[in-house]
Simulated assay, not measured.
Amino acid sequence: MSKNSQFFVFEGIDGSGKTTVSKKVSEILNSKSIPTEWHREPTESVHGKKIREFLQGKIKLNQDEQLKLFLLDREVSVNETILPTLKNGNSIVQDRYYFSTAAYQGKDEEHAADILYMNEDKGFPEPNRVYFLDLSPEEALERRNSRGGNKEAFDDEGEQTRIYQNYLAILPDSTIFVDATADLDEVVNFCVEDILKSLS
């Protein structure tokens, strides 16, 4: 992986703003002539679509079935998007990666760590930077309620608290914690500046 093609991952609980922030960051990098692909997991693969159906409450999946689908979808993600993009000399800004799977599908902190190792054992590439958009489960719930829309599988505040604690247990020491309560432009600019530093 060249210094000009790096892998940046955005993580956070539901409502933390990762999709919005990561998309804006990607747009700004491209506007600065830094070829960047915005990517997200779950993907649009057959496995990713099944995961989305589960998240929307259309189908039921137990924890093992969820985990199996996430791993299959990630293989598609890595082999068809992440590795080819980096090989072509472009960077990736990604909304969710294996830290999400560990945090969401982990029953507790220990199980979350096991899921993380399972992903690492598969040889999935390690990101250059991980940004965690830090927002308390209570604040995230308020945000999700205010934006409306259908409830999803992990919307319950108790679930979000479990996920948040799992994240804190498994995120790498190098993770950059970003205050997700700050102004959107401030959050985006902070991340862009940090990525430019990493690329320089």
Results as ranks from 00 to 15, higher is better:
F70T: 05
V21H: 07
T36H: 14
K32F: 10
G15T: 09
E44M: 14
D108K: 03
L83I: 15
I13C: 10
S33E: 12
N79F: 00
F54E: 05
I92V: 15
Q56V: 02
K23H: 14
S16M: 05
A103L: 08
K32T: 01
A112E: 04
L135D: 04
N90C: 14
P137S: 08
L86N: 00
Y131I: 06
Y98F: 15
R74W: 02
E41W: 01
E11N: 05
P137K: 07
S77V: 03
G12M: 00
I13N: 07
F124L: 08
D14T: 01
S77F: 15
S31H: 11
E37S: 15
E27Q: 15
T19H: 12
K87H: 12
D14Q: 03
F70K: 05
E65G: 10
L86Q: 04
E120K: 14
Q56M: 08
E138K: 09
G17S: 07
Y98A: 00
T36Q: 12
S31K: 15
R74I: 04
K32Q: 15
K60L: 08
E75R: 04
V46K: 14
F124C: 09
S100I: 02
S77R: 03
L133I: 03
Q94P: 03
K49M: 13
R129P: 02
T101C: 05
A140R: 01
K32I: 09
I13M: 06
L55K: 01
I34W: 05
K24W: 03
M118D: 14
E65W: 06
F54S: 13
D121F: 11
T43G: 06
V93L: 08
P35Y: 07
P137W: 08
E27H: 12
V76W: 13
R40G: 15
V21A: 09
N119M: 06
G123F: 01
Y104L: 03
P127C: 10
L71K: 11
P127Q: 06
W38A: 08
E27F: 11
F54G: 07
Q105S: 09
K18M: 06
Q105C: 10
I82K: 00
F10R: 03
S77I: 04
D114R: 11
E44D: 15
D134R: 05
N128E: 13
L67C: 01
S136K: 06
D108N: 15
S45A: 08
W38G: 10
G123H: 00
R40P: 02
N128G: 11
Q105G: 00
E120F: 02
D114H: 13
K87G: 05
L83Y: 04
A113M: 11
E109W: 02
V46F: 13
E109K: 13
D14W: 02
G106L: 07
E75Q: 12
E65K: 12
I34T: 00
E53S: 14
E53V: 00
S146Q: 15
D73L: 09
